Simulated assay, not measured.
Amino acid sequence: MTALYATQPTPELPSDAEFELLLDAFLSRYRKNTRDCYERDIRMFCGWLTEMGLHPFAIRRRTVEAYVRHMIDDRGNLARSVNRRLIALRMFYEFAIDDDYILKNPCRNVRLAKPKLDLTKKLSLTREEFQRFMRAAYDSNATEYAMCTLMGYLGMRVTEVCELTVPDVLHYSKGHRVVQFVGKGGDAFVLPQPPVVMRSLDALIDELGRDYKGPLFLRRDGSQMTRRSADRVVKRLAKKAAIADMIVSPHTLRHSAIVNAISAGIPLRDVQIMARHRDISTTIRVYDRGRFDLDTHATHGLAAYLGAVG
Rank of each mutant, 00 (worst) to 15 (best):
M1G: 12
T2A: 14
A6W: 04
P9Q: 12
E12Q: 07
L13E: 05
L13K: 01
P14M: 12
S15P: 06
A17S: 15
E18I: 13
E20T: 15
L22S: 10
F26V: 00
R31T: 13
N33S: 14
R35Y: 01
C37Y: 00
R40E: 04
R43V: 10
G47R: 08
L49R: 06
M52Y: 06
R62E: 15
R62S: 15
V64E: 01
E65Q: 12
E65P: 10
A66L: 08
A66Y: 06
V68E: 02
V68I: 08
D74Y: 10
R75K: 07
R75T: 02
R75A: 06
N77H: 05
L78N: 14
L78Q: 14
A79N: 01
A79H: 01
S81M: 08
R84F: 07
L86D: 10
L86T: 03
M91P: 02
F92W: 13
E94C: 13
F95R: 02
A96V: 06
D99M: 13
Y101Q: 10
I102G: 11
L103Y: 00
N105P: 11
C107L: 01
R108G: 03
N109D: 11
N109W: 01
R111Y: 00
K114G: 01
K114E: 05
P115L: 03
K116P: 08
D118P: 10
K121T: 06
K122T: 15
S124M: 05
D139F: 04
Y145H: 08
A146M: 07
C148S: 12
T149E: 05
T149Q: 01
L150N: 09
L150C: 15
M151L: 06
G155M: 01
V161K: 00
E163K: 04
E163S: 11
E163M: 05
L164I: 07
L164F: 00
T165L: 00
T165F: 00
Y172F: 05
Y172C: 09
S173Y: 12
S173G: 11
K174I: 04
H176F: 14
V179I: 11
V182P: 02
G183W: 09
L191G: 08
P195F: 00
V196A: 02
R199C: 13
R199Y: 09
R199Q: 14
D202S: 03
D202A: 08
L204M: 13
E207Y: 05
L208N: 02
G209R: 03
G209D: 07
G209N: 01
Y212I: 08
L216G: 10
F217E: 05
R219W: 02
S229F: 06
V233Y: 01
V234K: 11
R236H: 09
K240F: 12
A241I: 05
A241F: 02
I243P: 04
I243C: 05
D245F: 07
D245I: 13
V248S: 03
P250E: 04
A257M: 08
S263N: 15
P267A: 10
L268R: 00
R269N: 09
Q272D: 12
M274F: 02
D279I: 05
S281K: 07
I284M: 07
V286P: 14
D288N: 12
R289W: 06
R289I: 15
G290R: 00
R291F: 01
F292N: 13
T296Y: 00
T299F: 07
A303F: 01
L306I: 09
A308S: 13
